[in-house]
Amino acid sequence: MITFLQNVLDALSLGSLYALTALGIGLIFGVLKLINFAHGDFITFGAYALIIPSSADVAQVLVGGWSWELLIPTVCIAVIAIALASDYLVFRPLRGASPPTLMAASFALSYVIQNAIMVIYGARPKSVNLWPVLGDQTHVGPLTIPNLNLVTIAVTLALMVGMTIVLRRTSVGIQMRAAAEDFRMARYLGVRADLVIGLAFVISGALAAVAALLLVAQTGSLTQTMGQPIALFAFIATVVGGMGSLAGAVVGGFVIGAIVIMFQAYLPPDLRAFRDAFAFAFVILVLVAKPSGLLRAKGLVERV
């Protein structure tokens, strides 16, 4: 029972990371119908923003050494800047292009960011010790919980609540939801496209920055491909949850996190190496049973 609870906490923590990422991907998809493959590289960029650009083997921490009140906004601003720059340089010229074209463009963008980071920082992994206090553990009764898991879950919940309030209560949030539902109709009714799209990239970038910090705190190392696996799982999460549904992206993220952790815990030991294969195969089975995902989004079925 205790191990099961422990696993549930692990699943919640991993699911939080996937949910944050899937939400960032889902927001952009909702507004632009763009599957942003570069989201994982936004995360990587956020992590690299902690150190001084150089190809030396030992990382010199700059932003990473600041106090958290200063560090978090700085990394957020850095990632938001690259997200907005990506939109301006790549996606804005492609407004109105078909979803497969947009997807291919974001694939190219991802490749460019990843390799540009390699050109600037060198190919070797670097180690960064961010917030060592999070490595400690808290004991609650018989449970041993890494502080990082608690922080991850708490931060995710806070961001979800915050986003729900923004999306439901503020004017700009309601405009975003309207745009996600039917972009053309929303524009007819006076929603400013640039504002909504820009805001989607800002929020998506901020979510990527938070994911980056949680990831660095967890792994303590930087590589050019560090964001990729998370983004891959998050893509699958958006499909499982139901493409175009923001709640679906979050639910999908937690579902994938739970699947991965439970496979890790309960598969026979010699099959554990195949955990990811089982997780993804399971996801494909879910999709065969429910092709439009767990939460079906409105307004995505083409009407003739």
């Binding site: 997807m103 699958i236 493409m243 993804f280």
Partner: peptide, 27 residues
């Protein structure tokens, strides 16, 4: 499996396939 999905979801599912093959063959 994937021909049951809509175009864009199918594209993402093909990514899942790549991960599955890589994970199985690497281990």
């Amino acid at each position: 499996a994937i021909t049951r999905l809509s175009g864009i979801a199918a594209s993402i599912a093909t990514f899942a396939f790549l991960v599955i093959v890589n994970s199985v063959y690497a281990n």
